[in-house]
């Protein structure tokens, strides 16, 4: 089983040179730590920044400079700041190439649920609905199962949906899967030491297995 850091590390392999990328809160934020230095990419923060840099040192903390997770950050050279309407104009306008975000549930047709548990948790969707409705390439980073051991890869989402038919790829602590255009989780890679049978037993939705499934490489 992968750690959160390893999930982030595996997702970083999906990043391509020249991309503008939006990273969600949680595991997606960690992806930034593993993007190869030779790639030129720009990280977008939906609160109004292109060009997120590393966390500041203690003496460089600026309360007027945070990411969408409200964490203190720095800016890289060539950064630009803008207002929230401009930020989502670039998101909805299709100018952000890759969106990586967390999820509570993903369905086999690519629906995602990650903003609400009725009667229990009311945090809101933030920018997630805009992002998943707009980006062409959406990768989900999440645990394969909930804390109580239930599969989070489902036939259809039980929680309120954030977006429909939008997820392209999922990286969990057990596997890399792609959403098949005709429905189903196409198993592409296994986490080291995790068998296809284990993945099958933890996947409630339709799992598509063809040929040998390789282990992830790091």
């Amino acid at each position: 089983m992968l750690t959160k850091e390893q999930i982030a590390q595996r997702i970083a392999q999906e990043v391509q040179n020249g991309q503008y990328i939006n990273l969600g809160i949680g595991i997606p934020t960690l992806v930034a730590n593993y993007i190869p230095e030779e790639l030129e990419v720009v990280l977008q923060s939906e609160n109004g920044l292109l060009g997120i840099g590393p966390f500041p040192t203690e003496e460089n903390i600026d309360p007027d400079l945070i990411n969408a997770g409200k964490q203190t950050i720095t800016m890289v050279k060539g950064s630009v700041l803008f207002n929230s309407a401009e930020s989502f104009a670039m998101i909805r306008g299709g100018h952000v190439h890759l969106t990586i975000l967390g999820a509570m549930e993903v369905s086999e047709n690519g629906d995602i649920a990650n903003w609400k548990i009725p009667g229990k948790m009311v945090k809101g969707m933030g920018g997630a609905m805009d992002l998943v409705a707009s980006a062409d390439n959406i990768i989900v980073a999440m645990q394969h199962c909930s804390r109580s051991g239930e599969s989070k890869l489902l036939k259809s989402c039980s929680l309120p949906i954030t977006g429909i038919r939008c997820v392209k790829k999922i990286v969990t602590d057990m596997a890399v899967l792609e959403i098949d255009p005709s429905g189903g989780f196409f198993l592409k890679e296994r986490a080291p030491g995790v068998s296809v049978e284990e993945i099958q037993s933890k996947t409630e939705g339709k799992l598509i297995i063809t040929g040998e499934i390789p282990e992830m490489k790091f």
Binding site: E46, M125, G127, M129
Partner: peptide, 9 residues
């Protein structure tokens, strides 16, 4: 609760 981009727009 409104999607953030919708709220901004």
């Amino acid at each position: 609760l409104i999607p953030q981009g919708t709220l901004a727009e």
